[in-house]
Structure formats: structure tokens, C-alpha cells
Design a binder for these strands. Structure first.
Lengths: 144, 144
DNA sequence: TATTGTTATACTCTATAACTATA
DNA sequence: TATAGTTATAGAGTATAACAATA
């Protein structure tokens, strides 16, 4: 009785795993690892963000993040700029080439989604968004 | 217009990330890595399954799986048995100690869930299960 | 010939802790 | 003292390909 949510969690995990199975191939094809794509996707469509914030959003610890950013920098996909306010801090953003990759890869992953959701109507999306929003809220509230 | 599902995918990813953030600590505390917990959780509450099936379910490729299973075997948490039907194949199951760990760790992760979902009623669960089931169906159909 | 699982390789991620520079 | 990020270390996951045994 107290474990009904287990079914939901299992479903949630299966959905994510299914989506990763679909998208993973495209991610690898463009020469990115999972962690690297995570960074690119997080920086995409933003003006960039502080190093710290990037680590918090992607759940990558600072020691690891240094290496991941370094490899993306070597590939010319992201760039770092020292913050003026706080000289300890760095601001990370996609380079034009990084932006280009984001715009190439994301739509490819996205087109998979488009096919998957071709049968979804407005009501279906509304229901999905509503339930997931609620779920997100209780989950993140529990962590804070 | 054709990209409305992006919002749902983002929500889905955020929910999973939130849940991993909550559960990750407990997983690590019992000395398991993410991949190892994935195996334990997949084998839990089953009589075991062939090596191949385990790899398919966890998305761990065969070369990697050998190492992960090896480390779990060294810890005395899983055991392998040669299949009688097909001598190339192995059957993997939790040892009694592995079962015990599963029963200790899973409830701890589960108790987090119980707190998170304390405000959910029958209708909330029904809605969540319905939308996620539909999502799972279209995602896995697209992959097959 | 195809499939199951192992081995080998090279690289990436990971947690952790000690460290530097700035606040 | 505290925080942002780097460096060092040891272990684990990852893709890939070549390989053995079996089907």
C-alpha cells in the first residue's frame, strides 16, 4: 500500500532508459560522451553560466567538471572567461562551433522525439506535462 | 509547434535527475556504483536471468558487463551458473547476501520515495501511471 | 556462419582529498 | 575562515574490436 509509487518510479526509469537508448547513438556519432552532451545541452540556448552553476545543474562534481570542460575546450566547443566580479569564478559558454554542434545534434535527437510523439495531441501533452510537473515538484522539494 | 514534446522530455530528465540525486547517496553509502546498483536492482525479486538478458535490460554492453559482474561476484553479491541448454550462456542470480543487500538498500531508497509521494492520492498515482505508461509505450515502440 | 561471453586497449568519468588563489 | 576551481590518485565504466567456444 505504501509502495504504489514504485510502479511510477520504475516507469520513469524505463522511459528515461528508452529515450537514452534512442538518443545515445546520435550523441556518440557526433563524438560526444554522455557527460559532454549533458554540458552542451545545458549550455545550449543560454548566454552561458558560471562554472559552479553548470556543475550544480549537471550533477557533475567540480573535480570531474574540470576534466570534462577541458576536453570540450580542446575540441573548441566551449570557452571560459574569468569573471570580473569574482576572480575565483569562471564563466562558461558555447563557442560558435559549439552552438553549431548543438543546433545540429539536438534536432537530430529531437527528430527522434518528433516521430515518437507523432500520435500525441494537445490533451496528451497537457496530461503528460501536468503529471511530470507535479512529480518534479515533489522530487526536488524532497531534496532541498 | 512540432517541438512541444521537448518540454516533456526536459521534465522527464529533471525528474530522473532529481530522483538520482536523492537515491545516489544511499547507493554509494552501501559501496555500490550506479552500474552495480542497476544490476542488483534488475536481479532483485527475480529468480535470475541469462547474462544476455541482463545486458539488454541494463543497457550495459557485454564487454563492460563482464567487469561489472566480476566485481559483484568478488563482493559475493551475485553468482553465475553455466546454462545447461546452451553451454555458451551463463545464468546470473543474486546470492543470499546479494538478496539481503537488495532488501536493505532498496527500502532505503524506497523510503525516500515514500516521503516524496506522501501527498499523492489514488487519483494522482493513477494519472501518473497512465501518462508514463503511454510514454513508455511510444518510446519503446520507436526503438524496436 | 552466427552468437555468447572473454580479453585487450585506450579513454572518460567518478569520488575524494589536498591544494592555490581569491573573498 | 570560507569558497571557486585545479590537481592528483585510484578505481570504475565505456566503446570497440579481436578472440574462443559453442550453436
Amino acid at each position: 500500500m505504501g509502495e504504489r509509487y514504485l510502479k511510477s518510479i520504475r516507469l520513469l526509469a524505463e522511459c528515461m532508459q528508452g529515450f537514452e537508448r534512442l538518443s545515445g547513438e546520435h550523441v556518440r556519432q557526433c563524438g560526444l560522451t554522455h557527460a559532454q552532451f549533458d554540458i552542451i545541452a545545458t549550455l545550449g540556448n543560454t548566454p552561458g553560466m558560471p562554472y559552479k552553476e553548470l556543475g550544480d545543474k549537471t550533477l557533475i562534481t567540480k573535480g570531474t567538471l574540470t576534466g570534462v570542460i577541458e576536453r570540450l575546450e580542446q575540441k573548441g566547443l566551449v570557452e571560459r572567461e574569468r569573471s570580473l566580479d569574482d576572480k575565483r569564478s569562471w564563466f562558461i559558454r558555447l563557442t560558435p562551433r559549439g552552438e553549431q554542434l548543438f543546433r545540429e545534434v539536438f534536432p537530430r535527437v529531437v527528430s527522434l522525439g518528433a516521430a515518437v510523439f507523432s500520435g500525441y495531441g494537445d490533451d496528451d501533452f497537457a496530461a503528460l506535462e501536468k503529471t511530470l510537473s507535479g512529480l518534479k515538484q515533489v522530487i526536488t522539494a524532497g531534496g532541498a
